[in-house]
Structures are given as structure tokens and as C-alpha cells.
């Protein structure tokens, strides 16, 4: 428990909260421009968020505290996620290292709070979204844990900071097929967990296809604001993780102010580039049918599995 690790966590949280709405704005603008629209500008998510947080939420008679708690729990889990993942620096708390399994379970806390919120309202849409959301989460789980496994084998630990440091120390391993397969599987996981195309369309309210939007349909005002920010933070954290695993340079190895500054700049650049690429790719693909999603996830599972067994048998 050094002051340095506290400073790093504080930097992580502040950077994540400040950058996230901007990242969403960039992704929406890229998409709009590629589709020939002007778009609302990169600051629109910030404006939306401030508007939502200043509005009163509503509540139906007979609703339970889950209605109030779920958005807060989602927000808290996303923030803990940002604190644990080495976005800016690999310095971590000694007693809470960024262990991959802990990170995954914190992610799942957010997933479950969203699913319970969907059921809480007692409408057909909420239940439908919740059911689909949990089925996708269940199918993603094997890929998550196996790609984690594949990445942890060369480093000999499931501590994220140690994995990133090991990858900086041995840049050749980045182009190793084992590593590439695992990263690719992880990208599919990130897409599924954060509800992006082709698994879920974040900008649809079409009843046949929506997953995430169906769960938060009944929420409004402040609640919706927390839900939006919480979901966006998940995207930042996971994209940041993939970016730092695939391109581990720039992550601060210590808590010195200068290296933290470099780290912030690096992670910002990586997030914007990765977000823009993701948004550009989304223009060219359509949403999969819900019952085709398991095929996609099974494919990513096979990649992760190949990656693990190759790391044992070939390399």
C-alpha cells in the first residue's frame, strides 16, 4: 500500500471518467461521417450525461430498491474495473492486484446488476433483454477464461500488470500466434460484453434485436445517466485492456508524474484509435441474429482453446 499505487488508482479513475464520454463521442462521429451524416459532435455524450444526471427518475408503485441500487452497483463495478486494469500504469495495490479472475468477476457483478434491473420492472421488454443478456454472458464466459488462461501461461501469473510488463520485456512474443489468437478471442469477448455490433446494436430500439436497450428501457433521469456512464466505462476499461495487451508500450512502469503523463497520453491515443477502428468496422457489418451469436462465440472459444493448447504443445 504505497502512496504511489493510490495515486495510480486515482489517475485511472479520473482519466476513465473524463475520457469515456469523449471516446463514445468519437465513435459516434466516426460512424456518422462514414454513413454520410454530420453527427452531433464529439461532446454530445457529455451533454447527454449532464442533462440526464440533472433529471428526476421515476418509479412505479411496488418497485423494489433494486431500481435505485442497480445503476449505482453497475457504476461502482465499472469504476473498480477501471481501477484494477492497468490502463495508465502497471503499479497496483499490493493487496488487490489486478488479477484477471477478479477483474472478470467484477465485470460480472455489473452484468448481473443490469440483468436484475431488466427483470425488476416486470415488463415483457425488460425480461427479454435480461434473458438475452445473460445467455450471451454465459456463452462468453468460456472464451473469457480461456483467453485469460492463454495470456497467463507465458507470464506464469494471472496478474494483469505482470502480464503487461512481461509483454513489454519480450516484444517478440506479441507476434507469437498464441498471443495473436488470444487477443483476437478477447476482442470478440469485448464486443459481446459491451453490446457492440454484431452481437447487439447499441443504437437500436427495435424490439426483435435489442438486448442492452431493452433492459434499461424503464429507467430515466439520474438512473439512466448512471447506467449509460457505467456501460460506457466498461467499454473503456475493456478496450484499454485489449490495447495495452496488444500494444503494451507507453504504459507507465512506475508512479512518477512524468511517466504517468506519458501513460495517460498513450492510453488516450490507443483508445481513440481502437474506438475509431471499431466504429468504422461497425459500419460494414450487420447485427447477427440472436441465435447465430452462439456460433460466433463458439468460434472465438475455439481460437482461445487453440491458443492455450498451442502454448503448451508448440511453443
Amino acid at each position: 500500500m504505497t502512496p504511489g499505487s493510490f495515486a495510480v488508482i486515482l489517475v485511472h479513475l479520473v482519466v476513465a471518467v473524463l475520457v469515456t464520454p469523449l471516446l463514445i463521442g468519437v465513435m459516434r462521429t466516426v460512424r456518422a461521417r462514414l454513413e454520410g451524416r454530420v453527427g452531433a459532435g464529439v461532446w454530445q455524450p457529455w451533454r447527454d450525461l449532464i442533462k440526464l444526471l440533472a433529471k428526476e427518475p421515476t418509479r412505479a408503485p411496488g418497485s423494489t430498491p433494486v431500481l435505485t441500487l442497480a445503476p449505482i452497483v453497475l457504476m461502482a463495478s465499472s469504476l473498480v474495473l477501471c481501477a484494477l486494469i492497468p490502463l495508465v500504469s502497471t503499479v497496483a495495490l499490493a493487496s488487490v492486484p489486478g488479477d484477471l479472475f477478479v477483474v472478470v468477476s467484477v465485470l460480472l457483478v455489473g452484468t448481473v446488476s443490469l440483468a436484475l434491473l431488466g427483470l425488476e420492472s416486470g415488463t415483457a421488454f425488460g425480461g427479454m433483454g435480461s434473458s438475452r443478456h445473460m445467455v450471451i454472458a454465459a456463452m462468453v464466459e468460456p472464451t473469457v477464461l480461456l483467453s485469460v488462461y492463454a495470456l497467463s501461461v507465458p507470464a506464469g501469473t494471472s496478474d494483469l500488470a505482470a502480464i503487461v510488463q512481461a509483454r513489454v520485456a519480450d516484444p517478440i512474443s506479441l507476434l507469437n500466434p498464441v498471443s495473436l489468437l488470444a487477443i483476437f478471442a478477447l476482442v470478440v469477448v469485448v464486443i459481446a460484453e459491451t453490446g457492440r455490433l454484431p452481437v447487439d446494436n447499441p443504437s437500436t430500439h427495435l424490439e426483435l434485436t435489442m438486448v442492452h436497450e431493452a433492459m434499461i428501457l424503464e429507467s430515466g433521469g439520474r438512473d439512466l445517466g448512471w447506467l449509460e456512464l457505467g456501460s460506457w466505462l466498461r467499454l473503456t476499461a475493456l478496450l484499454g485492456l485489449v490495447a495495452n495487451l496488444a500494444v503494451p508500450w507507453g504504459v507507465a512502469p512506475d508512479a512518477a508524474p512524468l511517466s504517468l503523463l506519458v501513460g495517460v497520453g498513450a492510453v488516450f491515443a490507443k483508445l481513440v484509435v481502437l474506438g475509431a477502428v471499431l466504429a468504422a468496422a461497425e459500419v460494414f457489418i450487420a447485427k447477427l441474429r440472436l441465435f447465430r451469436v452462439p456460433e460466433l462465440l463458439a468460434g472465438s472459444f475455439v481460437l482461445a482453446f487453440l491458443s492455450v493448447s498451442a502454448s503448451y504443445l508448440v511453443f
Binding site: E56, P57, T58, R59, A60, S63, T68, T123, E218, G221
Partner: peptide, 9 residues
């Protein structure tokens, strides 16, 4: 901005 109870969500 306190929470408002509505009969109809």
C-alpha cells in the same frame, strides 16, 4: 431532484 412515483412507468 427527488424520485417521482408514477402509477405508470
Amino acid at each position: 431532484h427527488p424520485r417521482r412515483e408514477v402509477a405508470l412507468a
